[in-house]
Protein backbone atom coordinates (compact mmCIF):
# COMPACT_ATOMS: atom_id res chain seq x y z
CA UNK A 1 0.00 0.00 0.00
CA UNK A 2 1.39 3.43 -0.89
CA UNK A 3 1.70 6.08 1.74
CA UNK A 4 -1.20 8.13 0.35
CA UNK A 5 -3.46 5.14 0.30
CA UNK A 6 -2.52 4.30 3.86
CA UNK A 7 -3.41 7.82 4.98
CA UNK A 8 -6.71 7.62 3.10
CA UNK A 9 -7.47 4.35 4.77
CA UNK A 10 -6.73 5.74 8.22
CA UNK A 11 -8.93 8.77 7.53
CA UNK A 12 -11.70 6.49 6.29
CA UNK A 13 -11.47 4.27 9.36
CA UNK A 14 -11.58 7.37 11.52
CA UNK A 15 -14.75 8.56 9.79
CA UNK A 16 -16.42 5.23 10.40
CA UNK A 17 -15.35 5.27 14.01
CA UNK A 18 -16.63 8.79 14.60
CA UNK A 19 -19.85 8.00 12.73
CA UNK A 20 -20.43 4.96 14.88
CA UNK A 21 -19.78 6.88 18.10
CA UNK A 22 -22.07 9.70 16.90
CA UNK A 23 -24.91 7.26 16.25
CA UNK A 24 -24.44 5.70 19.69
CA UNK A 25 -24.37 9.13 21.31
CA UNK A 26 -27.56 10.14 19.46
CA UNK A 27 -29.27 6.96 20.62
CA UNK A 28 -28.27 7.70 24.20
CA UNK A 29 -29.30 11.35 23.99
CA UNK A 30 -32.63 10.76 22.23
CA UNK A 31 -34.72 9.88 25.31
CA UNK A 32 -33.43 12.99 27.06
CA UNK A 33 -34.25 15.20 24.11
CA UNK A 34 -37.66 13.57 23.81
CA UNK A 35 -38.27 14.12 27.50
CA UNK A 36 -37.41 17.82 27.34
CA UNK A 37 -39.42 18.38 24.14
CA UNK A 38 -42.43 16.55 25.51
CA UNK A 39 -42.32 18.49 28.74
CA UNK A 40 -42.99 21.67 26.76
CA UNK A 41 -46.06 20.38 24.94
CA UNK A 42 -49.67 20.34 25.92
CA UNK A 43 -51.17 16.99 26.74
CA UNK A 44 -53.17 16.85 23.49
CA UNK A 45 -50.13 17.83 21.45
CA UNK A 46 -48.01 15.16 23.10
CA UNK A 47 -50.56 12.47 22.34
CA UNK A 48 -50.95 13.45 18.70
CA UNK A 49 -47.24 13.13 17.94
CA UNK A 50 -44.92 15.55 16.17
CA UNK A 51 -41.46 16.76 17.12
CA UNK A 52 -41.42 20.32 18.30
CA UNK A 53 -43.95 21.94 20.61
CA UNK A 54 -45.85 24.65 18.71
CA UNK A 55 -46.14 26.84 21.78
CA UNK A 56 -43.67 25.90 24.56
CA UNK A 57 -45.57 25.35 27.79
CA UNK A 58 -43.05 26.67 30.33
CA UNK A 59 -45.76 26.62 32.94
CA UNK A 60 -45.44 22.84 33.06
CA UNK A 61 -42.14 23.38 34.85
CA UNK A 62 -43.65 25.85 37.24
CA UNK A 63 -46.35 23.37 38.09
CA UNK A 64 -43.83 20.55 38.57
CA UNK A 65 -41.83 22.74 40.92
CA UNK A 66 -44.93 23.65 42.90
CA UNK A 67 -45.63 19.99 43.57
CA UNK A 68 -43.77 18.17 46.40
CA UNK A 69 -41.14 17.17 43.82
CA UNK A 70 -38.54 19.64 45.10
CA UNK A 71 -38.89 18.24 48.58
CA UNK A 72 -38.46 14.74 47.12
CA UNK A 73 -35.29 15.87 45.39
CA UNK A 74 -34.06 17.35 48.63
CA UNK A 75 -34.77 14.06 50.42
CA UNK A 76 -32.94 12.10 47.77
CA UNK A 77 -29.94 14.42 47.73
CA UNK A 78 -29.65 14.41 51.51
CA UNK A 79 -30.00 10.67 51.82
CA UNK A 80 -27.62 9.98 48.93
CA UNK A 81 -25.06 12.38 50.34
CA UNK A 82 -25.24 10.94 53.85
CA UNK A 83 -25.11 7.31 52.81
CA UNK A 84 -22.43 7.88 50.16
CA UNK A 85 -20.25 9.76 52.63
CA UNK A 86 -20.53 6.95 55.11
CA UNK A 87 -20.01 4.30 52.44
CA UNK A 88 -16.88 6.12 51.34
CA UNK A 89 -15.30 6.23 54.79
CA UNK A 90 -16.24 2.69 55.77
CA UNK A 91 -15.36 1.36 52.33
CA UNK A 92 -11.97 3.06 52.32
CA UNK A 93 -11.16 1.70 55.76
CA UNK A 94 -12.18 -1.82 54.83
CA UNK A 95 -10.37 -1.69 51.53
CA UNK A 96 -7.26 -0.39 53.31
CA UNK A 97 -7.30 -3.31 55.72
CA UNK A 98 -7.88 -5.79 52.91
CA UNK A 99 -5.16 -4.33 50.73
CA UNK A 100 -2.36 -3.52 53.17
CA UNK A 101 -2.77 -5.36 56.45
CA UNK A 102 -2.02 -8.99 56.98
CA UNK A 103 -4.15 -10.79 59.51
CA UNK A 104 -5.69 -14.18 60.02
CA UNK A 105 -8.92 -14.74 58.11
CA UNK A 106 -8.35 -11.92 55.64
CA UNK A 107 -9.15 -14.17 52.69
CA UNK A 108 -12.30 -15.38 54.37
CA UNK A 109 -13.49 -11.85 55.13
CA UNK A 110 -12.90 -10.80 51.56
CA UNK A 111 -14.72 -13.90 50.28
CA UNK A 112 -17.67 -13.16 52.60
CA UNK A 113 -17.85 -9.54 51.45
CA UNK A 114 -17.73 -10.50 47.80
CA UNK A 115 -20.09 -13.41 48.41
CA UNK A 116 -22.75 -11.08 49.76
CA UNK A 117 -22.93 -9.64 46.22
CA UNK A 118 -24.21 -13.00 45.04
CA UNK A 119 -27.40 -12.79 47.09
CA UNK A 120 -30.15 -11.23 44.96
CA UNK A 121 -31.23 -7.95 46.51
CA UNK A 122 -34.85 -9.12 46.64
CA UNK A 123 -33.77 -11.88 49.05
CA UNK A 124 -32.40 -9.31 51.46
CA UNK A 125 -35.53 -7.17 51.60
CA UNK A 126 -37.38 -9.18 54.22
CA UNK A 127 -34.51 -9.67 56.70
CA UNK A 128 -33.45 -6.05 56.25
CA UNK A 129 -37.02 -4.89 56.81
CA UNK A 130 -37.29 -6.93 60.01
CA UNK A 131 -33.98 -5.57 61.29
CA UNK A 132 -35.03 -2.00 60.54
CA UNK A 133 -38.38 -2.51 62.24
CA UNK A 134 -36.70 -3.99 65.34
CA UNK A 135 -34.44 -0.95 65.43
CA UNK A 136 -37.60 1.15 65.17
CA UNK A 137 -36.19 2.94 62.17
CA UNK A 138 -38.97 2.26 59.68
CA UNK A 139 -40.34 5.33 57.96
CA UNK A 140 -37.45 7.62 58.96
CA UNK A 141 -34.48 9.35 57.36
CA UNK A 142 -32.13 7.47 59.67
CA UNK A 143 -33.60 4.18 58.53
CA UNK A 144 -33.06 5.04 54.89
CA UNK A 145 -29.44 6.02 55.53
CA UNK A 146 -28.66 3.15 57.91
CA UNK A 147 -29.84 0.55 55.42
CA UNK A 148 -27.19 1.64 52.91
CA UNK A 149 -24.14 2.34 55.03
CA UNK A 150 -21.89 -0.14 53.29
CA UNK A 151 -21.29 -0.57 49.60
CA UNK A 152 -19.80 -3.91 48.65
CA UNK A 153 -19.03 -2.84 45.13
CA UNK A 154 -17.31 0.25 46.55
CA UNK A 155 -15.11 -1.85 48.82
CA UNK A 156 -14.09 -3.96 45.87
CA UNK A 157 -13.44 -0.93 43.67
CA UNK A 158 -11.27 0.75 46.28
CA UNK A 159 -9.42 -2.42 47.18
CA UNK A 160 -8.45 -2.90 43.54
CA UNK A 161 -7.29 0.71 43.36
CA UNK A 162 -5.30 0.39 46.59
CA UNK A 163 -3.54 -2.70 45.30
CA UNK A 164 -2.09 -0.54 42.51
CA UNK A 165 -0.37 1.75 45.00
CA UNK A 166 3.28 0.72 45.34
CA UNK A 167 3.69 -1.10 48.68
CA UNK A 168 6.86 0.85 49.44
CA UNK A 169 4.73 3.97 49.73
CA UNK A 170 2.74 2.40 52.56
CA UNK A 171 5.93 1.11 54.16
CA UNK A 172 7.53 4.54 53.92
CA UNK A 173 4.50 6.03 55.68
CA UNK A 174 4.74 3.36 58.32
CA UNK A 175 8.40 4.12 58.95
CA UNK A 176 7.41 7.79 59.05
CA UNK A 177 5.29 6.95 62.11
CA UNK A 178 2.02 7.68 60.30
CA UNK A 179 -1.08 6.08 61.81
CA UNK A 180 -3.20 3.92 59.51
CA UNK A 181 -5.80 6.69 59.43
CA UNK A 182 -3.26 9.27 58.30
CA UNK A 183 -1.71 6.85 55.80
CA UNK A 184 -5.13 6.24 54.31
CA UNK A 185 -6.10 9.89 53.87
CA UNK A 186 -2.73 11.57 53.36
CA UNK A 187 -0.90 9.00 51.25
CA UNK A 188 -3.37 6.55 49.70
CA UNK A 189 -6.32 8.84 49.05
CA UNK A 190 -4.50 11.42 46.90
CA UNK A 191 -3.08 8.62 44.76
CA UNK A 192 -6.38 6.76 44.39
CA UNK A 193 -8.55 9.88 43.91
CA UNK A 194 -10.05 8.81 40.56
CA UNK A 195 -11.36 5.63 42.12
CA UNK A 196 -12.84 7.63 44.96
CA UNK A 197 -14.60 9.83 42.39
CA UNK A 198 -15.97 6.80 40.59
CA UNK A 199 -17.08 5.45 43.95
CA UNK A 200 -18.99 8.63 44.79
CA UNK A 201 -20.60 8.83 41.40
CA UNK A 202 -21.74 5.24 41.22
CA UNK A 203 -23.09 5.07 44.75
CA UNK A 204 -24.68 8.51 44.71
CA UNK A 205 -26.50 7.68 41.46
CA UNK A 206 -27.61 4.28 42.72
CA UNK A 207 -28.93 5.82 45.90
CA UNK A 208 -30.63 8.73 44.08
CA UNK A 209 -32.29 6.35 41.67
CA UNK A 210 -33.36 3.77 44.23
CA UNK A 211 -37.07 3.09 44.24
CA UNK A 212 -37.97 -0.36 45.52
CA UNK A 213 -36.33 -0.31 48.92
CA UNK A 214 -37.31 3.25 49.92
CA UNK A 215 -40.92 2.58 48.98
CA UNK A 216 -40.86 -0.53 51.19
CA UNK A 217 -39.58 1.20 54.29
CA UNK A 218 -41.25 4.61 54.03
CA UNK A 219 -44.90 5.54 54.23
CA UNK A 220 -45.17 9.24 54.81
CA UNK A 221 -45.09 11.38 51.64
CA UNK A 222 -42.73 13.73 53.48
CA UNK A 223 -40.00 11.09 53.26
CA UNK A 224 -40.54 10.20 49.60
CA UNK A 225 -37.46 10.08 47.43
CA UNK A 226 -37.53 11.26 43.81
CA UNK A 227 -38.57 8.00 42.21
CA UNK A 228 -41.52 7.77 44.59
CA UNK A 229 -42.34 11.43 43.95
CA UNK A 230 -42.35 10.86 40.19
CA UNK A 231 -44.62 7.88 40.60
CA UNK A 232 -47.02 10.17 42.38
CA UNK A 233 -47.46 12.15 39.15
CA UNK A 234 -48.42 8.97 37.32
CA UNK A 235 -51.12 7.85 39.69
CA UNK A 236 -52.50 11.28 40.49
CA UNK A 237 -54.92 11.45 37.61
CA UNK A 238 -55.98 7.79 37.58
CA UNK A 239 -55.22 5.27 34.85
CA UNK A 240 -56.11 7.50 31.88
CA UNK A 241 -55.58 10.87 33.44
CA UNK A 242 -51.78 10.84 33.62
CA UNK A 243 -50.55 14.31 32.86
CA UNK A 244 -47.64 13.31 30.63
CA UNK A 245 -46.15 16.77 30.02
CA UNK A 246 -45.99 17.25 33.79
CA UNK A 247 -44.34 13.84 34.25
CA UNK A 248 -41.77 14.82 31.63
CA UNK A 249 -41.11 18.21 33.21
CA UNK A 250 -40.68 16.55 36.61
CA UNK A 251 -38.32 13.97 35.16
CA UNK A 252 -36.24 16.65 33.49
CA UNK A 253 -35.86 18.48 36.80
CA UNK A 254 -35.02 15.25 38.61
CA UNK A 255 -32.24 14.41 36.16
CA UNK A 256 -30.50 17.77 36.57
CA UNK A 257 -28.58 17.09 39.81
CA UNK A 258 -27.24 13.83 38.39
CA UNK A 259 -26.10 15.53 35.20
CA UNK A 260 -24.34 18.15 37.28
CA UNK A 261 -22.50 15.56 39.38
CA UNK A 262 -21.57 13.61 36.29
CA UNK A 263 -20.28 16.68 34.49
CA UNK A 264 -18.12 17.48 37.51
CA UNK A 265 -16.67 14.02 37.99
CA UNK A 266 -16.77 12.36 34.59
CA UNK A 267 -13.08 12.85 33.86
CA UNK A 268 -12.07 11.01 37.00
CA UNK A 269 -14.91 8.57 36.68
CA UNK A 270 -13.51 7.01 33.53
CA UNK A 271 -9.92 6.71 34.76
CA UNK A 272 -11.16 5.40 38.10
CA UNK A 273 -13.07 2.57 36.48
CA UNK A 274 -10.34 1.68 34.04
CA UNK A 275 -8.20 0.90 37.05
CA UNK A 276 -5.19 3.10 36.42
CA UNK A 277 -5.75 4.76 39.82
CA UNK A 278 -4.09 7.85 38.43
CA UNK A 279 -0.59 6.52 39.03
CA UNK A 280 2.15 7.05 36.54
CA UNK A 281 5.40 5.10 36.43
Amino acid sequence: MSKDKAINFIAFARCIKIGFIAICAALMAFPFAWMVLSSLKTKAELMSGGWLPSDPQWLNYLEAIRSPLLRNIGNSLAISAASTAYQLVSGAMLAYALAYMSFKGKGLIFALIMGSCMAPSAATYIPSYIILSKMKLLDSYTGLVVSSLVSVFGIFLLRQAFMQVPPSLIEAARLDSASHWRTLWKVVYPVAKPSFAAFVLINAIASYNSYMWPSLVTNSPDLYMVSQGLRHFFIEGGAYGTNWPLVMAGSAIVVLPLLAVFALLQKWFVSGLSGSAGLKG
Binding site: E171, A172, R174, L175, A178, P190, V191
Partner: peptide, 16 residues
Protein backbone atom coordinates in the same frame (compact mmCIF):
# COMPACT_ATOMS: atom_id res chain seq x y z
CA UNK B 1 8.15 3.13 63.39
CA UNK B 2 9.57 2.71 66.90
CA UNK B 3 12.95 1.34 65.82
CA UNK B 4 14.43 4.78 65.22
CA UNK B 5 15.61 3.88 61.77
CA UNK B 6 14.99 5.49 58.41
CA UNK B 7 14.80 3.72 55.12
CA UNK B 8 15.55 4.82 51.58
CA UNK B 9 13.73 2.75 49.00
CA UNK B 10 14.81 1.66 45.57
CA UNK B 11 11.93 3.52 43.91
CA UNK B 12 12.30 6.44 46.40
CA UNK B 13 8.69 5.95 47.62
CA UNK B 14 8.11 9.70 47.76
CA UNK B 15 4.50 10.64 48.50
CA UNK B 16 3.33 11.76 45.04
Amino acid sequence: QDREIAMVFQNYALYP
